[in-house]
């Protein structure tokens, strides 16, 4: 039982990160119908900027995160701006464009920070909480709390604000949205910006848990993407559930199947997707591709 619960806790912690990554994927997808393959690299850039301002500039961790979110948000806007001429013209080229941005960002990180990577000490120095032999890292609780707050904010933005509603409208029918005076390009840029900000949030938070290196985006990107698909691509609650799900499945597969855990995780993922091709919250708001 102890192993079971401890495994679950371990899975939740990384799951929260995957959930944030998944939300970024989903947000861009629901608005533009586009899979942003540069998303994993944006996570990595976010992690680097957060750790640089935290370690080198010695800003408080929260402030370093804010800077990271700001800078990557800008990167998101740039990506969207460069790709905008292709919107509704050549979808495949747009996809490849995001892959290209991923490569560029990774190369940039190597040029700026070197290929070696860095370790980030935990900003929450408190010892883990001991609950009858179960150990819960205080930092994990912080990560979960921030992820929950980010989700709540995003949902509030999408459902209660005018701009959010405009983005929803673009997601449903971009021509109709244009007809009622919504600026589709601006809405897309917003989606990219928020998506990139979420990526930075995930990257900044995962730094102290893992190790910041130019290659870290690959794995987080894949797991986050899988989380988004699992939950129902385009759905925000789905991204949360899918991300946490992937984290927990991963953790248990690691306990049971050891060296074959990765294989088992994606086998389970495949089976779920075969049974429910649209994911857990399978409403496909977008189908523009």
């Amino acid at each position: 039982m102890q192993v079971f619960l401890q495994t679950f806790i371990g899975g939740m912690s990384l799951g929260a990160i995957y959930a944030l990554v998944a939300m970024g994927f989903s947000l861009v997808y629901r608005t533009m119908g586009l899979v942003n393959f540069a998303h994993g690299s944006v996570v990595m850039i976010g992690a680097y900027i957060a750790s640089t301002f935290y370690l080198s500039v010695k800003l408080p961790f929260a402030l370093a995160m804010a800077v990271a979110i700001g800078v990557t948000g800008l990167i998101g806007i740039i990506i969207e701006r460069v790709l905008r001429p292709l919107e509704n013209k050549d979808f495949d080229l747009m996809l490849i464009g995001t892959i290209g941005f991923g490569i560029v960002l990774e190369a940039l990180a190597i040029i700026i920070w070197g290929a070696t990577g860095r370790a980030v000490p935990s900003p929450v120095p408190a010892a883990p909480i001991d609950l009858g032999g179960l150990r819960i890292r205080t930092y994990d609780l912080v990560v979960l709390a921030i992820a929950a707050a980010a989700t709540a904010l995003l949902v509030y933005f999408l459902q209660r604000t005018k701009r959010g509603a405009a983005m929803q409208a673009v997601a449903m029918d971009h021509q109709a949205a244009t007809a009622v005076g919504i600026h589709v390009g601006r809405s897309n840029a917003m989606a990219f910006m928020i998506g990139a900000g979420l990526a930075a949030l995930a990257g900044g938070l995962v730094g102290p848990l893992l190790y910041v290196s130019p290659a870290m985006g690959g794995l987080l990107g894949i797991k986050g993407f899988a989380g988004a698909i699992l939950g129902g691509f385009g759905s925000i609650p789905g991204a949360i559930l899918g991300g946490l799900g992937i984290g927990v499945i991963d953790s248990f597969a690691a306990g049971q199947f050891q060296g074959y855990s990765e294989l088992v995780t994606f086998l389970i993922f495949t089976v779920i997707i075969m049974i429910r091709p649209t994911g857990i919250f399978g409403e496909r708001t977008v189908n523009r591709a």
Partner: peptide
């Protein structure tokens, strides 16, 4: 005797087993 994958980041299960 716990084996992990080269990409693995969370070792809760393996380490809890070892702890026991």
């Amino acid at each position: 005797d716990q084996v992990v994958t080269t990409d693995q980041k969370d070792f809760s299960a393996a380490l809890t087993n070892i702890r026991q």
